[in-house]
Amino acid sequence: MKPQDSGFMHLVTRLEESRSATIGATIILLICLSAVFAPQLSPNSPTKACLADRLISPFTEQKYPLGTDHLGRCILSRLLYGARISLAIGIVVVGISATVGIVLGVVAGYRGGLIDTTIMRFVDATLSFPSIFLAVVIAGLLGRGLASVAIALIAIEWTSYARVARGSVLSLKEQGFVESARSLGARDSYIMTRHILPNIVAPVIVMATLGMAYVILSAAALSFLGFGSQPPTAEWGAMLNAGRVYIRTEPHLTILPGLAIMIAVLAFNLLGDGLRDILDPRQIDQNGNSA
């Protein structure tokens, strides 16, 4: 059993097996492109207010294809720039949580004993809090801003990676190739990085993809509640919160940012579900796609 078998490239080549994964990956690519090329794609500045042009409805003026908000800022430009914030916060939170979680989980599972007990008690305690309650308290008390939101979400997210990493290590530890490596005199650090880590790449990719969806959604919710990004930053959740005051007269201020959040979250969920189906042979059996 070669570790690369469940590795990254293997997943990419099998992506086309799942329709939902393909659709999800395509939408994510489009979102990434609009985030990267936001300055080129945006017809206007995302933050420059122009009170003379305030509250224009979408599809009425060529200068503002999707209309303007209460300060006369271009909605399309703000949505494009908003993709940057959502993707950035997703990548930062998922990246740090996965790294911290995997390191702690692997160490806990491999070493066992007191280190294991201590780390896992912290995981249990964190999971005992209803996650959004913990997130709003941390984000709210650290002070408003995207950094607080990121810290709050990392504080919650790392636990799931730690659990999965620890679980995989416990089952891998007893397998032949780890034992042979150990009997050949390999150091613990070598076994952990060369034999254990490659084998948990696949489940972690699935978790990280679904985690992106969760983090984008939660960060938008925290911004919507007023704890995240602060004006004039173009962030989808904050745009929705500012727009809902005008829900009676200008519903597009509520509808459009919400649609953007949903498409982004949906794309990552589709990709994550698709990847899980590819990786979990049992589920494929059930769907009758593969023997």
């Binding site: 929705l240 919400g258 949906l266």
Partner: peptide
């Protein structure tokens, strides 16, 4: 179900309100 899982509840709430 996929749409329901991915839909932000604050957005759904506001749409229903609307």
């Amino acid at each position: 179900a996929s749409l329901g899982v991915s839909m932000p509840n604050f957005w759904l709430g506001l749409l229903l309100m609307l």
